[in-house]
Design a protein around this nucleic acid. Structure first.
Lengths: 264, 264
DNA sequence: GGAGTTCTGTTTACGTCGTAAACGAACGGG
DNA sequence: CCCGTTCGTTTACGACGTAAACAGAACTCC
């Protein structure tokens, strides 16, 4: 059933394996009842995916694992730390992605392309988790979302420097790339999130709520169909390609893209 | 005192009026003890700026206003709604910004430039609030952060369409612009936020915590000074200018920037 | 194999949260 | 004068995060 359509989004969960396998987990058939940090984090991701970030409480997560809330504290020092772990868990799915490599085998553009799509796949697979990525404080004060893990930052910087980027250019590229990914995916994910939530409310009142007076915004109303059109995949691709082109110029000109910087 | 330095960030709070006047509020000298929605939202923004988002509770906000928590519910239906109001309040500061105009007087580029810097000023003035902008669900399912208010979206679309953009191009530009602003400012704000929090902990233990083993990330370590260098203002400017150039091309070629679109 | 130790999950308890509901004081118009 | 309205307080409830004490199972070492 549902083979990938021809123009389907290559990063959408349906287009690939189906419901995002959260993580390899320990030994697949191992002691089913054994609690450990990995299992807890995996369950937390699963729970957030299913019920939403707001629904995650220690008690409910415990129940989901067939255990009392306090049992979790044996492996997780606090709820805050658990959320950090959730972010890390989700980003770590990159390691399991066969299309993403830690080192560039076919040039840095290919590397960045694959990495970007890998992160996008994660964002789309875990839309409820992704906002956390933007919100949590970072491991080191200077390494920033969405590539939270230092290992990826290291990989990123090495890849670019090995490809001829100056140190300054590599760092600059890292930031441009990060903010691009963060902004685009956050927007995309929250768009999806609401689109779902819209019909997610089959409560007594169908959707009365406070309908704002749209008559003051005729252009918005007129363009509603365009505004709600989902061209995310194409837009992402285009913006990403533009970014790569920009970086290419930076690399070729061998300079940090700083204003007032006169060439050699 | 402290006149703006020559290379100071033009959007930083210090560079301008000082500690971000939250909002005009009702009549400045009016009945000091009168509660109303405006005053509550203003106090909430103030409180979040001062104590952080996590510290805001109904009881504490009440106390801050010299009132019991339940009094707030006379004017605010729920905490969730209050947070929505906080976002709105902060974005509405744009109306009071003399450098930002609702309609383009000197071309759309100037309009977008001013708007972007206006939003950046807000983000920098309220770093603790800004993540909320990215997180809250939107007014209409399709209008998206960070330009949450429909009035600004309307203004944006009208400005571009009046400047010759097709409807499709205007909507496309809106999304590119939004995600750029959101991503860049979120990154920048969280960077600042942590830089502050770093020395914000003069607790008993100076900063023992779990120092990750950085030896595995030699490049990250080597580039630490570059990574923590704050060139946000220049980076913002550069990325913004690049975006505007891109849009200019779109406008001149009179097409939606969609792939597979062959030029005339 | 038995005594101690460690590991694991439960029970109980506390303080804080958001908020429903009942309450009282101030007030303005008949 | 009294009555409704407005505004803030009091009280109360259930859910939360988590500290602390606890209980049983599993492992260690003799």
């Amino acid at each position: 059933m549902s083979e990938p359509r021809e123009d389907a989004d290559p990063d959408s969960p349906e287009g690939r394996g189906g419901a995002a396998a959260v993580l390899p987990a320990a030994a697949p058939g191992s002691g089913r009842g054994a609690l450990d940090r990995r299992r807890i984090l995996g369950a937390a991701v699963e729970y957030i995916d299913a019920e939403g970030l707001g629904a995650l409480t220690m008690r409910r997560l415990g129940a989901h694992l067939g255990v009392e809330a306090m049992a979790l504290y044996r492996y997780v020092p606090s709820r805050e730390n658990l959320l950090d772990g959730v972010v890390e868990t989700v980003i770590d799915e990159l390691y399991g992605d066969p299309d993403v490599h830690l080192a560039p085998g076919h040039g840095w553009q290919d590397y960045l392309q694959r990495l970007a799509h890998g992160v996008r796949r994660i964002a789309l697979a875990h839309p409820e988790v992704f906002p956390l990525v933007a919100t949590r404080p970072p491991a080191a004060p200077w390494v920033r979302p969405p590539l939270r893990s230092l290992r990826w930052v290291e990989s990123f910087l090495v890849a670019l420097i090995d490809s001829g980027f100056s140190q300054e250019a590599a760092v600059s590229a890292y930031r441009a790339y990060s903010s691009f990914l963060l902004g685009h995916l956050l927007l995309e994910v929250s768009q999806k999130g609401v689109a779902v939530n819209a019909e997610d409310k089959p409560d007594g009142v169908p959707a009365a709520q406070e309908a704002v007076d749209l008559s003051q915004y005729p252009t918005v109303v007129r363009l509603e169909s365009l505004l709600s059109l989902d061209e995310s995949a194409a837009e992402f691709e285009e913006a990403l390609e533009n970014l790569l082109e920009r970086l290419e110029v930076v690399l070729r000109e061998g300079r940090t893209p700083r204003r007032g910087d006169t060439r050699d």
